[in-house]
Write a protein that binds this DNA or RNA. Structure first.
Length: 723
RNA sequence: GGACUCGUAGCUCAACGGCUAGAGCAUUUGAUUUACAUUCAAAGGGUUGGGGGUUCGAAUCCCUCCGAGUCCACCA
């Protein structure tokens, strides 16, 4: 044995051997208790960041349960990460002076597919370098054919159950990404924008969006507002930039008389609040901004009998970007004497795209929505019946809160990189003309490509060009990955999975949805336990981000200090579910701990090999050692079985280093060197037992030492850990 | 505006109603022809954010105030 533990020379070889010997492979074994975890699938296209290294907690569980003798499945996978990946790919295209609009759908998809395949191996090998006991033979990709079939199946079931509907409503649209987002993907920021006070017939209104006023469909006041009471219900003519418009004054208690002038313009097509008002009072939805973020005045220009002045204006505005149009219109308003004043100090919050930071436009679009209410009710029952338990407990409250406030889920995305929605629109014109007819009546869903229209039977139906929100496929991950394994019974044996372990930041986006869709599809909870870990931050507690330049590459840490050291540093001394500030110092400390483990082994091993046959008295201190070790073991199992891994590790650390090494070995050093076999054996037993207990946390160093003691062919993973 | 988390040694955090509030790093002093200098022994460093309450006993439970952060909702 070397005088120092050198992980770089050992880790790669050990992992290869584990994988080759199939030690991570799961089988159906009726005599054993199944224990399963599905790895939250990292983005197939990207490298791992430190947050991914937190999956070490899952490895701790997987290896611990292997040692307990359970049948363990830890299933790896990769996510196609729709928007993320398409965004990265478009950046890559831009470098070559191209854009996605230069390619047709099939070509673009194929290009991204190849791009992802090229990069996919990186992430997988990084997971190996971290020592994760993943069953690679069962790995899945969200775009695998069989997974897609599963996703289609779920979509059809939702459709058939009436939980899916198509609706024309305001969605969060990023005109730069060219797609809508769910509400979870909108980031609100505080911003200063001019608030324009405009003359509006007999009134003054305040708005930050004068460019949308052409499509206002009403004015709204508070019913109790004395200033405007006499106007309610009246329709008046108001001079505007493009000539007079007719406007009806409605009243709604939601209008705040104290804001601005107490009278608001209602633009159902471009403001979520106004859209709701529009629905309530049956106002038409009349868009004026396109999905490209440009003004659309074609509705105006197609009219006859407009004066040359107004036509010229409309033509000037037409097709301008929103910001530019606003600028010009404000100038025109001023010219017409319609602008009263500008409040330059108005701050408000606006939605921006989480991906590229551009302003989100609320646009009316037809999209697929999942009715979440019934699903939420089922999940709440699961929680109440303790079919699924949340650790640490405080997150259960948050989950319930999330469920109570879940709004219908928009699953349509207008990007190419994703799973195409298997919905088709009947093109036959319906004979009955009814404005109130629901938009989804003309749609059908089919898992296989349909040969004829399932509604009318003979039209040239069209497939929805949209793809699914990435979370829609992810929400099915626990059961989809198991149902698509070769053995039929694999699913029955391992489902519901035992634990879902992930960061608390995706409790809403992922965990809640997995529970909803998982229960809907299988009638069971997808996992019995949810364990949530915190976020890795930098040493000052700041979020790591590329723009801040404080990102630590986990692989650098592995190269420098070994995978065990990195893993230990992410678990040691961290309260369950708490964020942890990452410091290289701590990794160094854990590297030292690994070295300590190694050298304790070295000391015992050296003396074992030169055992002399001197028989002497059994040292008294051995009784204390036994007692102390029994107590440690008890604590260890208690902590491990209640998801308190940090505590289990902390206790072991304390015992191994400061009791076993600093106290007992020091006490027994002389008698051992003099050949006291009893003392040596007692130490060896306790040490090797501790090696097993520590193996889930530090798999490499423990395995390396184990092999020294028990031969190259042995593996600590084949040992039993008993309480 | 709503919810949650946190405030403990210089720094980062443990301690989850019960021994003298602990660890890592940092600081100071000393040891070692050594299993390990990636070591060991020891020292300094604390009114547990302030105040009040419950209790035989509170960092821990309750109330209140102050401060920091996160998530959610978002009125033109």
């Amino acid at each position: 044995m070397d005088s120092k533990y050198q992980p770089q020379q050992i880790e790669g070889k050990l992992y290869e051997e584990w994988e080759k010997k199939g030690l991570f492979e799961a089988k159906i074994n009726k005599d054993k208790k199944p224990f399963s975890i599905i790895l939250p699938p990292p983005n197939a296209n990207a490298s791992l960041h430190l947050g991914h290294a937190m999956y070490a907690i899952e490895d701790v569980m997987a290896r611990y349960h292997k040692l307990l003798g359970d049948e363990v499945l830890w299933l790896p996978g990769a996510d196609h990460a729709g928007i993320e990946t398409q965004y990265v790919f478009e950046k890559f295209l831009r470098k070559q002076d191209k854009s996605r609009f230069d390619f047709d759908r099939q070509t673009l998809f194929k290009m991204i597919w190849d791009f992802v395949q090229e990069n996919r191996g990186t992430m997988e090998n990084q997971l190996r370098k971290l020592g994760f006991a993943l069953d690679w033979k069962r790995k899945k990709f969200t775009m695998d054919e069989d997974i897609v079939a599963q996703v289609y199946d779920t979509f059809k079931k939702l459709f058939d159950s009436g939980l899916l509907y198509r609706d024309y409503r305001l969605v969060n649209y990023c005109t730069r990404c060219g797609t809508s987002f769910s509400d979870l993907e909108v980031v609100y920021i505080e911003r200063k924008d001019p608030l324009y006070y405009m003359k509006y017939g007999p009134f003054t209104i305040a708005t930050v969006r004068p460019e949308t006023k052409f499509r206002d469909t009403a004015l709204a006041v508070n019913p109790k507002d004395k200033r405007y009471k006499k106007w309610i219900g009246k329709t008046i003519e108001i001079p505007g930039l493009l000539g007079p418009i007719k406007m009806t004054i409605i009243s709604d208690p939601e209008v705040d008389p104290k804001f601005g002038t107490g009278i608001m313009k209602v633009t159902p097509a471009h403001d979520p609040h106004d859209f709701e008002l529009g629905k309530k009072y049956d106002l038409p939805v009349t868009p004026i901004i396109t999905t490209e973020g440009r003004m659309d005045f074609s509705w105006y220009l197609s009219q006859k009998n407009i004066s040359e002045k107004y036509r010229a204006r409309a033509e000037k505005y037409h097709h301008l970007k929103v910001a530019k149009a606003r600028e010009i219109m404000v100038a025109d308003l001023r010219q017409d004497g319609l602008l009263i004043k500008i409040d330059e100090n108005y701050t408000h919050r606006i939605g921006t795209c989480y991906r590229d930071g551009s302003v989100i436009e609320p646009l009316p679009l037809e999209q697929w929505f999942i009715k979440v209410k019934p699903l939420v009710a089922d999940v709440k029952k699961l929680l109440k019946d303790k079919k699924v338990k949340i650790h640490p407990k405080r997150f259960e409250k948050r989950l319930v809160d999330i469920l109570d406030n879940f709004i219908d889920w928009n699953v349509s995305r207008q990007i190419v990189w994703g799973i195409r929605i298997p919905a088709y629109k009947c093109k036959k014109k319906s004979k009955v003309k009814s404005q109130k007819s629901k938009v989804d009546e003309k749609w059908f869903v089919s898992i296989d490509k349909p040969e004829k229209c399932l509604i009318c039977g003979d039209c040239k139906f069209e497939q929805d060009p949209d793809t699914f929100d990435t979370w829609f496929s992810s929400s099915q991950w626990p059961f989809a990955t198991l149902l698509t394994q070769k053995e039929n019974k694999f699913f029955n044996y391992f489902y519901p999975t035992t634990v879902m372990e992930t960061g608390y930041d995706i409790l809403r986006a992922w965990v809640a949805r997995m529970l909803m869709i998982g229960y809907f599809s299988t009638g069971k909870t997808p996992f019995e336990h949810v364990f949530l870990h915190g976020l890795v931050r930098d040493s000052k507690g700041q979020k790591m981000s590329k723009s801040k330049g404080n990102v630590v590459n986990p692989m650098d840490m592995v190269t420098k200090y070994g995978a065990d050291a990195l893993r230990l540093s992410l678990i040691f001394g961290v309260g369950e579910g708490n964020d942890l500030p990452f410091s290289e110092q701590k990794v160094v400390g854990m590297r030292n701990f690994c070295n300590k483990i190694w050298n304790m082994g070295r000391f015992i091993y050296m003396n074992r090999n030169q055992k002399s046959k001197v028989k002497s008295q059994k040292p008294k201190v051995l009784d204390d050692l036994k007692k102390e070790f029994e107590a440690e073991k008890k604590n260890y199992f208690k902590a491990m079985n209640s998801f308190k891994f940090s505590q289990a590790l902390g206790d072991s650390y304390e015992f191994i280093w400061h009791r076993l090494a600093d106290f007992y070995i020091e006490q027994l050093k002389d008698v051992i060197i003099n050949g006291n076999i009893e003392a040596l054996e007692a130490l060896e037993n306790v040490y090797l037992e501790n090696l097993k207990m520590l193996h889930p946390f530090a798999p490499f160093v423990t395995e390396a030492v184990w092999k020294t003691f028990n031969g190259e062919e042995s593996s600590i993973l084949l040992e039993k850990l008993t309480g």
